[in-house]
Amino acid sequence: MTLQMTQPAPAATPRRLTPGDVAARTTSHNSLRETLSQTMSMAWRATKKMRRNPEQFFDVTIQPLLFTAMFAYLLGGGLSGSVEAYLPLVIPGILAQTALTACMATGVQLREDMEKGVFDRFKSLPMARIAPLAGPMIADLLRYAIASTLTFVTGIAMGYRPGGGVAGVAMAIVLTMIAGWSLAWVFTWVGTLARSAQSVQGISMMIMFPLTFMSNALVPVETLPGWLAAFVKVNPVSYIVTATRDLANDGQITGHVGWALVACAAVIAIFAPLSVRSYKRHL
């Protein structure tokens, strides 16, 4: 830009640049560093919000306790002969399930947030359009960490002894957080599409139930009819559950872990651009 201002700045505020100077200093887009900094600022905002609305933690604290106990006692005897024998199968499954439920809330809250006046300001600021979406998702990593830790604690209290040891469990928790963050993009996309928070909730439920239950989270694939097994095998949640089992039960970083990460990357690659595009259209 070749904007030359020969006019002196008003004497009252010598700090102020002339508008021409400001116009000449503008940049055409956000750098990666700016985008990251904006995303972290939005994450900071989300953590403040969580601290002031502690009810946001209900799902990630109550559900791990409830689901672990419920499914283990309900299905353990029938599927594996005993609750203890079922736990190594079901704990990683419930881990994925709670992460998925936790990231469902991401979409609902984004939608609620977008209704508020403050989002008008976010839109009017020269900030990266991905920051308001990715920021809260980074804060949500805390929720996934809480949910997965509590699931393990409940399991261990019920007699689960993970063969992978502390390192295996830690890696399983990290994988769950990565998976939660990746799958949250699906719900973020729904959040930018739907007209109200309620409809986000409804649509998300319809996505979440098939994804979690039509996977190997609760039952071995071998017990399923062929058509169902075919879906279960391509479901990204199945990859994540298998990888989590390998990490928590065997302490091994297997090919399944690699495939789970590939599945996560694929989900991000599809749904992150879709979300940003749909969010921009709201402008």
């Binding site: 400001v22 200093r25 503008t26 600021l125 020269p126």
Partner: peptide, 11 residues
């Protein structure tokens, strides 16, 4: 993006 850097908006 440049425009947004020059403006303050109060709704």
């Amino acid at each position: 993006h440049r425009t947004r850097q020059l403006l303050g908006v109060t709704g």
